[in-house]
Nucleic acid binder design. Structure first.
Lengths: 310, 310
DNA sequence: GACCGAGTATAAGTCATGGTGATGGAAGAA
DNA sequence: TTCTTCCATCACCATGACTTATACTCGGTC
């Protein structure tokens, strides 16, 4: 399609003809406030003819006289007062908008939708959430717990702003920063006298296809183990319970295996280190002050806290 | 004072930096509505680069990103949605303003402040007022009755929009049109057997200095009468009553002298024609549709009505 | 009544702005 | 891959907005 200057879209022309510059409203407001073109021009830092022309243009665009002569003065007409009311409303609305935008830019307001895998939600981030809420009370924080894959998809679909997942996505419009490196250990049934799993052991693991499972499989392989999987679950609590019941062996982060409710259940038998999984904070490329503030807290906590991996 | 371009008023600069063109808001709205720069540009009748630049400028002025990349699309950010809300509010407010202004321009709405001398309010204009209210129900009509001199002053002071007074003012920024020529007759006490006043008659007249009085004095002089004034009043009812009580002679328009409440009072004795006074509609030079509509009704009534002067 | 100061409009020139068309890059589809 | 879609960037040009200088109009003054 071509755009010709000489034959513009007529309805667009009609539309445009009535739209003017907000500056003109500011001019009108100042002229009304100071009751005079000359004074207003001086206050606004423009020449008097500039004001005169600008307001004449506004009158043309609105199709009504805004001023009527009163000696050598010009006085607002009724119509002018109507337009003035509009101007003051619009300009103060704009100022309010600016304030809100500034608050958002500083990360002090708005909506922040965070997704995290269950391990993160259980052991790593509750303290971060608490502190973020304290520091940014105007931010509406919404939390989602799901799998890494699902969370990343929802981040990409603009349904979430920040996700804490396992492993960085190979995607150029997502940015990732590591928050935590979490060692994963083999755990066996409490009754087992072995510290390492037998070759014919049954395994209770994260589901095939999950990111943590991929990391675990690689780690087990490096230990010479090809696990026979008896049960799969995304829920680490389920895995721990199954092992506690003697159903097989598993691979878990330490804090999960030592979960408090384990006080009642028998303690799992800890085996060798398998691998580390990396918990990363992922967000879209576009900068968002709320996202960055949350992520900064998460990283800071990691550095401050005594090493949770031992 | 001189205006230098290189050293503008800094606060005015800061102010101006944040003010943009309403067109940019319309662009934003259309992009949001059609979800795409290219489609919006086509709908708006401008080129796609024009839109792209215009919205980039808007982002700069507001200091926040309005869009974030989503594949080859651009998607509104939260901030963008805030600005969009502002845009829709401002543009619809503007549309509403336009409607009100149009109504005013057509004389269908607004405020109309009319002043009239008592004779006009009593005998000439009630019907006009009734019909105007019927035809322009949205116009807020406010009425003031006072002397010609006072009304003209208030018209000049922008406290009234239209006045019906005696005699046109010699003033270039007021416009006057005659509505009615009203004959003035001598009236004597009911008891009098004379049809013309005796040379030693007492007179009861409009106050010296009033316009009607000036007209009357001139008329009486042409009849060879230099009236000895016993009582003055702006109120023609008062004049009529005093004559009815036999206090003296007066000069009045016919309808006043024949006022209905005169049914109880004795009828005045009508004397010779003295002069005519001219009732004119006066308004400021600046055009005002409401004023002109009212005045048109007043003139029309005059032409339609059977001659009230006989 | 001519003159002057105040307040605004108009004129002519300059620079900024916003437009156009052409082109380029990046992402999704074939 | 190549094509298509969508937006950004570029160079150029028309328009618009601002500048200074000047004219006009009104009200006050000698």
């Amino acid at each position: 399609m071509t755009y010709t200057r000489s034959v513009p879209n007529p309805e667009a022309l009609a539309l445009d003809a009535g739209l003017f510059h907000l500056r003109q409203l500011a001019y009108l407001r100042e002229v009304a406030r100071l009751d005079g073109f000359t004074r207003a021009a001086e206050a606004l830092g423009v020449s008097q003819p500039a004001l005169s022309q600008s307001l004449a243009d506004l009158e043309r665009r609105l199709g009504v006289p805004l001023f009527e002569p009163d000696g050598r003065h010009r006085r607002l007409t009724d119509e002018g007062r109507e337009v003035l009311a509009f101007a003051e409303r619009a300009l103060s609305d704009l100022a309010a908008l600016r304030e809100r935008l500034d608050a958002r830019r500083r990360g002090e307001a708005g909506l922040l939708r965070v997704g995290m895998i269950d391990a993160a939600s259980l052991y790593v981030l509750p303290e971060v959430i608490r502190r973020y809420r304290l520091q940014h009370p105007e931010v509406e924080l919404s939390l989602v717990v799901d799998t890494s894959t699902e969370l990343t998809a929802r981040l990409r679909a603009f349904e979430l702003d920040l996700v804490f997942v396992v492993g960085a996505p190979a995607d150029s419009d997502l940015r990732a920063d590591e928050v935590l490196r979490e060692p994963l250990y083999v755990f066996g049934p409490p009754a087992s006298r072995l510290r390492t799993p037998p070759a014919d052991a049954d395994w209770v693991l994260y589901p095939a296809g999950s990111r943590t499972r991929a990391v675990i499989d690689a780690g087990l392989a490096s230990l010479g183990i090809a696990p026979r999987v008896a049960l799969e679950s995304h829920n680490p609590e389920v895995l721990r319970q199954m092992v506690a019941l003697g159903l097989g062996w598993t691979v878990l982060p330490l804090p999960v295996a030592e979960e408090r409710s384990a006080g009642r259940a028998p303690r799992l038998r800890q085996g060798p280190l398998v691998t580390e999984r990396s918990l990363v904070g992922v967000r879209r490329r576009a900068e968002n002050a709320r996202v960055e503030a949350f992520l900064a807290l998460a990283r800071e906590r990691h550095e401050d806290a005594p090493d949770t991996s031992k």
